[in-house]
Design a protein around this nucleic acid. Structure first.
Length: 455
RNA sequence: GGCAGGGUGGCUCAGUGGUACGGCGGAGGACUGCAAAUCCUUUAUUCGCGAGUUCGAUUCUCGCCCCUGCCUCCA
């Protein structure tokens, strides 16, 4: 049984066979660091975190690279508005990114290259494109890519050059030889961040950084390139055009794109203003809830964000944490992942299906424990699956019993109630339980005494 | 208009050429002093609509309707 992935390039699922046996090179487009990340960014990061984890689980040594775009018009504008330098802005946003994604249990990539630290690579690639006649210097001094000269342009996004042109409603930049051409190197205006280049002081265009940085870390041809659906065109299309033209051949072999997060069936985006930042959401919900929410839908499908959807994710986790609470004392043994789970993950990272396997095993654990049967193997598998998905990583205690509650008082009341129960004073016992229930505290009378949790 | 991806029970979310996974919710039951948690049973003659291929289609083909996204910066 082996991994099958949906390759946007071929628009179908393909067996995943890395270039070099046992090794995977994976590049994922990160974020432009001019603002805080929203739930859409969280989805993308979580999705590729799962890909990363699963590849490693499958025995691959993964060179995972994710960039930060830290030079860009929006960054310059935002920094100016805030009266800080662009590097101050990008530094603080990179830090915020790490805080948010760490909270969501996303593993850090092996490399997180920044555009501003890879100028030479980009300049070299642009030089190659100019030398090969694939790029030219415009009247305004910008270096532009000649899209028409690249055979196969549009393969990834399924667009034809003729259609692009006729459908183009944006104002045409007069300095371009062709409206389709895009900027490789942009001349700096006074006061803008700038780097020296053979074409004068300026900064790179958006697309070139990913071509240059991916190739520099992973080689000219590598296995996986990922990102949000919206990057397919033009960004990824342009990356392909640049890299293949410069390298004279290959580039990423498998293209993976995650679907959007929607609100009211509309894409969450900055421009629509209908976004929630991750930290905003995490104020009122546990990070694992957000992660669970993301994993509950296949990564290529649209994902509707709402309080209700988060609630569903939370309730699901409650169920799993109930199990975790029961199995805390069970010893750790080594065990293979259940077949159903492996099959699901191998089928283009089908996390909803994988979660179904988790629930099913959970039910079997409950059943076995109810019957006082051995559960070591099941528990080990359960733990392994959850850990791989990056859920159930808190203790059940922390999950159900927030530290801001006065545990001593609650437990005192429980003692009092149990005394009442023992003397069959159920009126008093229920009174205590109702008192706590009013505070959102649920009591559970189990075989081993009474436990409580916040609901 | 072009391209891409969708329309599955009250909600959500998988999936398959042989009448549909899981979660939430609902109903009934076991357990409990009563609950909670847990377990069991049950909850879609049916997978947008129509036609075709087939012994058989929700799954394949064609047409239609509807939704979303991309075509401009965007995870």
């Amino acid at each position: 049984m082996s991994l099958v992935v949906y390759n946007s390039l071929s628009r179908q699922k393909e067996p995943f066979v890395p270039l070099q046996a046992g090794h995977v090179g994976m590049y994922v487009c990160g974020v432009t660091v001019y603002d805080l990340c929203h739930v859409g960014h969280a989805r993308s990061t979580i999705v590729f975190d799962i890909v990363y984890r699963w590849l490693q689980q499958s025995g691959y040594v993964v060179n995972y690279v994710r960039n930060f775009t830290d030079v860009d018009d929006k960054i310059i504008r935002r920094a100016n508005e805030s009266g800080i330098s662009t590097s101050q802005l990008t530094e603080s946003m990179i830090q915020a990114f790490h805080e948010d994604m760490d909270a969501l249990a996303c593993l850090r990539p092996l490399h997180e290259p920044r555009a501003t630290l890879h100028m030479q690579g980009m300049i070299t690639m642009i030089g190659q494109l100019v030398d090969k006649g694939m790029a030219y210097v415009s009247r305004t001094g910008d270096v532009l890519y000649s899209v028409r000269k690249f055979e196969g342009y549009g393969q990834l996004s399924g667009k034809r050059i003729e259609e692009l042109e006729s459908g183009s409603r944006i104002e045409v930049d007069e300095s371009k030889e062709d409206p389709l051409d895009f900027v490789l190197w942009k001349m700096a205006k006074p006061g803008e961040p700038a780097w020296d280049s053979p074409w004068g002081q300026g900064r790179p265009g958006w697309h070139i950084e990913c071509s240059a940085m991916s190739c520099s870390h992973l080689g000219e041809t590598f296995d996986i390139h990922g990102g949000g659906m919206d990057l397919k065109f033009p960004h990824h299309e342009n990356e392909i055009a640049q890299a293949r033209a410069a390298n004279g051949g290959g580039f990423a072999r498998y293209w993976l794109h995650n679907g959007f997060v929607n609100i009211n069936e509309e894409k969450m985006s900055k421009s629509l203003g209908n976004f929630f930042t991750i930290r905003e959401v995490l104020k009122s919900c546990h990070p694992e809830v957000l992660r669970m929410f993301v994993l509950s839908t296949h990564y290529r499908s649209p994902l509707d964000f709402s309080d209700q959807a988060l609630d569903v994710a939370r309730v699901g986790l409650d169920r799993l944490y109930e199990i975790k609470q029961r199995i805390d004392a069970v010893e750790h043994v080594d065990v293979e992942l259940p077949l159903a789970f492996v099959k699901a993950m191998n089928d283009d990272f089908n996390t909803p299906e994988a979660l179904a396997a988790v629930y099913e095993l959970g039910r079997n654990i409950n059943k076995a424990m109810d019957a006082a049967c051995p559960v070591d193997d099941m528990v080990a598998a359960f733990r392994a699956m959850c850990s791989l998905l990056g859920i159930l990583q808190s203790s059940a205690d922390a999950w159900f019993r927030p530290v801001d509650l006065d545990a001593a008082r609650i437990e005192g009341l429980i003692v009092e109630r149990n005394a009442a129960r023992k003397s069959r004073d159920f009126a008093r016992a229920d009174e205590v339980r109702d008192l706590l229930a009013a505070e959102g505290i649920i009591l559970e009378d189990g075989a081993n005494g009474t436990t409580w949790k916040k609901e």
